[in-house]
Each structure stands twice: as structure tokens, then as C-alpha cells.
């Protein structure tokens, strides 16, 4: 019976093809440092899931953001756990993605034929930092407010266009409801969409080209 169902599905979905090309393929023998890419993927997933749960109660307005987080921490069952994982996940993400980049650099994995994998990886590294930067403001506490104040001041130092850039980031002169709305939407729509798309390309390239091997003296 099971095999009948599997055959029916396979005929339509091409499961065997996926199994052969994705799972049942040979890979050079590598060490534990090579798990960091999939660790990043796992963390993205975890951040996504905990983030979705947080949006249930989070209110992106300066009047209520702080209180809604207080409610998540004190009122919602296991809200503190979900927020704790999301909070620390962000820090771990940055570390893991960065070390993943150092590993690919050390192994020269950015060279032929994986140049594009590297380029998409840089996009993902920057998007991760962007997620950290935009997510940091959302709790609307002192640390968040002032970190965003100094963070958005940095582009303001560029001559001529600087003040304009700061205004675009903030949606006005100071940190306001508009800033929070912009950061919130960047954090939950724009950047995740970019990340999902880029991860898709990154993964396609990894499966198509295979992971690099650890170079030896002859390489």
C-alpha cells in the first residue's frame, strides 16, 4: 500500500529524482567546520518561526511597542522563551554566518566554479546584519532607541547626500513612529524576502556544484 502511494506521488512529484540529485549524491569528505552553512540555515528557520510567533502580540507603534514586549515577556505563556530564543538567535546568527564566511575564505571555496555562491553569500551576510540592525529598534527601549539614533547618524556624515540618507532611514528628522514602521516592515517583509530568495539561489548553487573539498598541498 505504502509503495503504491509512494509510486503514485513519485510519478507526479519526481521524488526519486530529487532523492538522487539532492540526498543520494557523493560529497568530498569534509570536517565539522563545513556544518556552519546548514547551521546558518537552521538559525534562519528558527528566527523565522520565533519571529512569526512574536508578531502575534507585537505592536509596531512607539506608544505600544514597549508594552507589547512587556506583555510577551510577562503575560504570554512561554513568550519569554520565544523572545529569548529570537534575541540570542540574532547574536548567534551573526557569529555563525561570519565564521562560515571565514571558513569558505580559508578553503578558497570562492574560486572557480563557486564565484556566484560567494557573491550570494555576501548578500546574505549583509542582510543578516540588516536584520540585526532593524530588529534592534523594535523593542523601543532605551538601548534600542539610542543604538538606532547613533546607527542612523553614521551615514549622515557623508558630505552633501549624508543628511538626506539619514532622513530616508528615519523617515524624518528624528526616530519616530515612521522610523519604527519602516524598520518593522524591513525586518519582517523586505529583508526576509531578500534572504529567502538569496538562500534559494545559494542552495541551488551548492547542490549543483557540490561543496568544495579541503585543499591539500597540491592545490
Amino acid at each position: 500500500m505504502t509503495s503504491k502511494v509512494m509510486n503514485w506521488l513519485d510519478e507526479r512529484l519526481g521524488l526519486t529524482g530529487i532523492y538522487d540529485s539532492v540526498l543520494d549524491r557523493n560529497i568530498p569528505k569534509v570536517n565539522w567546520w563545513f556544518t556552519l552553512g546548514s547551521a546558518s540555515l537552521f538559525l534562519v528557520g528558527l528566527q523565522g518561526i520565533t519571529g512569526i510567533f512574536l508578531t502575534v502580540y507585537y505592536v509596531p507603534s512607539p506608544d505600544h511597542a514597549y508594552d507589547s514586549i512587556q506583555y510577551i515577556m510577562n503575560g504570554v505563556a512561554y513568550g519569554w522563551l520565544i523572545r529569548g530564543i529570537h534575541h540570542w538567535g540574532a547574536t548567534l546568527m551573526v557569529i555563525v554566518v561570519f565564521i562560515h564566511m571565514l571558513r569558505t575564505f580559508y578553503c578558497a571555496a570562492y574560486k572557480y566554479p563557486r564565484e556566484l555562491t560567494w557573491v550570494t553569500g555576501v548578500v546574505l551576510l549583509l542582510a543578516t546584519l540588516g536584520m540585526g540592525f532593524t530588529g534592534y529598534l523594535l523593542p523601543m527601549n532605551q538601548k534600542a532607541y539610542w543604538a538606532t539614533t547613533v546607527g542612523t547618524e553614521i551615514p549622515g556624515t557623508i558630505p552633501i547626500i549624508g543628511p538626506f540618507l539619514t532622513q530616508v532611514l528615519r523617515g524624518g528628522v528624528g526616530i519616530s513612529a515612521v522610523t519604527l514602521a519602516r524598520f518593522f516592515s524591513l525586518h519582517i517583509w523586505f529583508l526576509p524576502a531578500l534572504i529567502a530568495l538569496t538562500i534559494g539561489i545559494h542552495m541551488y548553487l551548492i547542490i549543483r556544484l557540490g561543496i568544495s573539498y579541503i585543499p591539500t598541498k597540491e592545490d
Binding site: V22, L23, D24, R25, N26, I27, P28, K29, G210, Y213
Partner: peptide, 10 residues
């Protein structure tokens, strides 16, 4: 060659 003496992804 490396792939040949490598391991299965799954």
C-alpha cells in the same frame, strides 16, 4: 576524484 572517495550527503 575527491567526490569519488567522499561520503554520501545523506
Amino acid at each position: 576524484e575527491e567526490k569519488q572517495k567522499g561520503v554520501k550527503f545523506y
